[in-house]
Amino acid sequence: MPQFGSDIFLLIANWIRGLFGANTYAADVVMDIVKFIMIYVVLVLAVMVFVMLERKVCAWMQLRVGPNRLGPRGWGQIIGDMIKLMGKEDFRPDNVDKWPWALAPMFFLGITIMVFAVLPFGRGMVPVDLDLGIFYILAISALSVLPVVTAGWASNNKYSLLGGMRSVAQMISYEIPLVFSLLGVVMITQTFKTSAIVEAQQHVWFVLLQPIGFVVYVIAAMAEINRAPFDLIEAESEFGCGYFTEYSGLRFGLFYLAEYANLFLISAVAATVFLGGWQGPFLPGWLWFAIKVLFMVFLIMWFRWTFPRFRVDQLMHFGWKVLLPLSLANIVLTGVGIYVYQLIFPGIGG
């Protein structure tokens, strides 16, 4: 039975559906719209919190106070940052390739938002419960290279172009270990469905069964979204700002938003696939999910503010010569493990 408090969002959803009575088609359409809006709202709110959290975490790591003027303990800075970004002049340099330049940030953000459709935010709270969940996440996020390289090229700036060039090399290389690291879990659960993967972790989180997979996933995902120490694409001490050097105002804001949305995304996928998703005692599922995501976000910020940056060839070597073999070994180990498990407990699994 859904309890009030733990499943408050499900109750609301049911209430909305109830308004349409027998007209299930209309209810579906309305619910889809509501889900879409909710994804967007959650995303923007989360990003605002993350931006602030990043500033606070980094200040804390660096023995500083961080923003502390606006609002209680500086948390009003969230609004201030947003207003500042929106109020900036949208400056378009001459000689940029106009349409690709203008559309790249929108596509970048759009692609990221699409992925959120399959994440289970709580018990029964998957916006679209696809059979192909994990595969869908990987497929869509594979597209996000394109806007980056387009932005880099269309800016007509050598720094941007070099950033774009690096982005292709980096994102494509790290996509492979990223895919393989998730494969172990898929082999165990025998499904791509995100909700089913969370259900399967009722007793034991996959981070315990797949420690190698988890580590490879976190590293590869950080590289995939260009977070330090893999932020070569926008390495500010080398390329100024990489592919978004020429962006300002709200277009820069979109990149910024997308970047933190990506951070949210990889943390959410990590929480879903390895940390048991919304499963957890006492607290409502969505709260557990939020806690796990925040934990992952904090972990990744911690990495960012303590590590220097890789060099481009070292990054490639690490991806191809360390992470890829590790993730392949993990798949073999998982296969053997499943086989042995089935020998000991015949009849379990398929």
Partner: peptide, 9 residues
């Protein structure tokens, strides 16, 4: 080299 924190230290 990308490590901001030691700079602040």
């Amino acid at each position: 080299l990308g490590g901001m924190t030691p700079f602040l230290y």
